[in-house]
Design a protein around this nucleic acid. Structure first.
Length: 575
RNA sequence: GCGCCCGUAGCUCAGCAGGAUAGAGCAUCGGACUUCUAAUCCGACGGUCGCAGGUUCGAAUCCUGCCGGGCGCGCCA
């Protein structure tokens, strides 16, 4: 609001030069260096050339004529090549503390997203194996973007797309069937290109031991939805062996998928990840969406036939070559159901679709986005974010992630090893597009070297002070505006400046899909608090000062707790 | 060959809708607990922002070309 006030005053002052709102984009920014004031404008630098003036001179004139509320803005100065710097009045710095405490867990919300409906798709790992490290990164980033968008006024839903159709599933069924036979002591071979992983053997062993009772245990994890829609094979595993080969393979395949999918859900839950829906690829095949997608593409004039196959002219929209939709043997490629799946997202009301994909999929972006344009969707409707690879570092060296060696490769093992909060923080602390070196030794340390702990410690420390205040009979009363005037130490002011940035940080993190801004902000706030704590005693003999500092602490706690909540981390009251 | 990502302090990374002396953490060295959690804080050391051009009043930031590292380029999914 104070920024809005300055912006309007500045625009008003510019009218004298024949410059109006539509002529210039005001960029008011917070200077890094506090000696440059609280808000800075480069408008004189931008306009100098157009007006044929010297920047510094022009800045001086504007600064002299701009009309500001003295209660909000203490001073206006020109500096450097021609910046106009505004310094807030003290009360304008401390007043936001009251709003923060008042709003509590709602602080940070905004309407920046204007209710836009977004479907976020992430992880979407094949249900034929355990979740791995890249899945963990996707889980952290996707779920946090979901929370952040929600807070910033979008209407996001999160979705896990389950590839439960196609060749992979059949292969998996064959592999599991073979392992089951082996477990019974019979001769069987896992297919050459099948699933060799140890986990298949484990599932087979469990199946042998407990039979279909295994499902009953797992059903507790299910809201009824997944198992309800995935046909549970009838009878026992031994019955399935009696079926003809195709039926038998299918039974073992669906059984394995149900088991893995539910374990994925359990793993996600451990990681504070919740999906609003699990969308089955089989649903796409059972509905008429594939035919409809194909018809829509045809109607748009982007489909042709060549060498017996059906092609989509994705080159119409910037792809490097056209892509096959239906093979010459009449079966659809992976591409077509995927288009149909995105058609369903649109039909379910998505105004924007964001997919998180692994590093091996960036060749996929151009064709998928082109396909969406072939369907007539606006450019940008589908946004694909590539999460780069994760290297686990141990003893200063990259850990070989060999499946055979059984090294730490699954998401569950990672959570066991370093805990949910630290893992999430590490994943969220990097830009999505950056390769990420995950330092296991650092992550395991419960010390100041570990930024996740650092932030949580700040929160616990505040809670400790608040407890002490209560124990000493200090009333839980928010300070008055006059009392807040007592906050004058450098570290106090620094905190006051920082805390009100939360709503803007959240809104920008959502808009840029950049969650690393939040982790950085969390560290900044924690640092500012630790400095304040070091410099100022909170509980003093001066009741008014104590109230002011407790209010500042309380506001800091709110901002830290809300930020940690967005990151999917615990905000502990004691450590 | 084409495309995507990355190249900033010894290490891990910020900063990049152009803006005022390039910032953190770790590591190294030196300080601060009779006082609300020292899982903390303060200080010192440390950089031709991969290289070369260009645009600009101003470039780590934008454009072009190189160099180096990672990944991707199927009628696989």
């Amino acid at each position: 609001m104070i920024e809005r006030h300055i912006e309007e005053a500045l625009l008003h002052a510019l009218e004298a030069y024949g410059v109006f709102e539509e002529d210039v984009q005001l960029e008011l920014e917070r200077p890094k260096d506090p000696s440059h004031g609280d808000l800075s404008s480069n408008v004189a630098l931008i306009l100098a050339k157009r007006l044929g003036r010297k920047p510094r001179e022009l800045a001086g004139e504007i600064a002299a004529t701009v009309e500001l509320d003295k209660d909000l803005v203490e001073s206006v100065e020109i500096a450097g090549p021609g910046f106009i710097n505004f310094r807030y009045a003290h009360t304008a710095l401390t007043r936001p503390l009251l709003e923060i405490v008042e709003k509590g867990e709602h602080y940070g919300e905004s309407n920046a997203g204007e209710g836009e409906r977004v479907i976020l798709e992430y992880i979407s790992a094949n249900p034929t194996g355990p979740l791995n490290i890249v899945s963990a990164r996707a889980a952290a980033v996707g779920s946090t973007l979901h929370r952040v968008m929600h807070k910033a006024g979008y209407r996001p839903t999160s979705e896990f797309y389950v590839n439960n159709a196609g060749r992979q599933v059949r292969l998996f069924g064959e592999s599991l069937r073979a392992r089951y036979l082996q477990a019974k002591g019979q001769e069987a071979e896992v297919p050459e290109d099948g699933y060799q992983g140890e986990y298949v053997r484990e599932i087979a062993a469990e199946l042998l031991e407990r039979g279909v009772a295994l499902f009953d245990e797992l059903k507790e994890l299910d809201t009824g939805r997944i198992i309800g829609e995935l046909a549970v094979p009838k009878g026992t595993p031994d019955d399935w062996l009696e079926l003809d080969e195709e039926e038998s393979t299918r039974a073992f395949g669906s059984c394995g998928i149900i088991i893995l999918l539910l374990s994925h859900r359990r793993t996600c839950r451990r990681f504070a990840v919740h999906f609003d829906s699990w969308y089955l690829e089989s649903e796409i095949h059972q509905s008429n969406r594939i035919e409809r997608a194909l018809k829509l593409l045809r109607d748009g004039g982007h489909v042709y036939e060549k060498e017996g196959a059906v092609w989509l002219r994705t080159t119409d929209f910037g792809d490097e070559k056209d892509r096959v939709l239906v093979r010459s043997d009449g079966t659809p490629t992976y591409f077509l159901p995927d288009i149909a799946y995105h058609l369903s997202k649109k039909e379910r009301g998505a105004e924007l679709a964001i997919d998180f994909l692994g590093p091996d999929h960036h060749g996929y972006i151009a064709r998928m986005q082109a396909a969406m344009e072939c369907l007539g969707y606006p450019p940008g409707w589908l946004e694909i974010i590539i999460l780069q690879q994760v290297n686990l570092i141990q003893d200063g060296k990259p850990l070989e992630m060999s499946k055979r060696a059984g090294r730490l490769v699954t998401m569950d093992q990672l959570i066991d090893e370093v805990g949910r909060d630290v893992a999430r923080f590490f994943f969220l602390a990097r830009k999505n597009s950056s390769h990420l070196d995950f330092d296991l030794d650092l992550a395991r340390q419960q010390s100041n070297d570990n930024p996740g702990w650092y932030v949580k410690y700040a929160h616990a420390r505040i809670c400790s002070v608040l407890r002490n205040a209560k124990a000493h009979g200090v009333q839980e009363k928010t300070a008055s505006l006059d009392e807040l005037e007592l906050l004058t130490e450098e570290s106090e002011i620094a905190l006051c400046r920082l805390l009100p940035e939360l709503p803007g940080i959240v809104a920008r993190a959502a808009a840029a899909r950049d969650l690393a801004r939040l982790t950085r902000f969390a560290i900044e706030v924690a640092t500012a608090f630790h400095q304040f704590y070091q410099q100022c005693r909170i509980l003093t003999d001066d009741a008014a000062l104590t109230r002011a500092r407790l209010t500042l602490s309380q506001a800091t706690r709110v901002v830290l707790a809300n930020t940690l909540e967005l990151l999917g981390m615990e905000a502990p009251e004691r450590m």
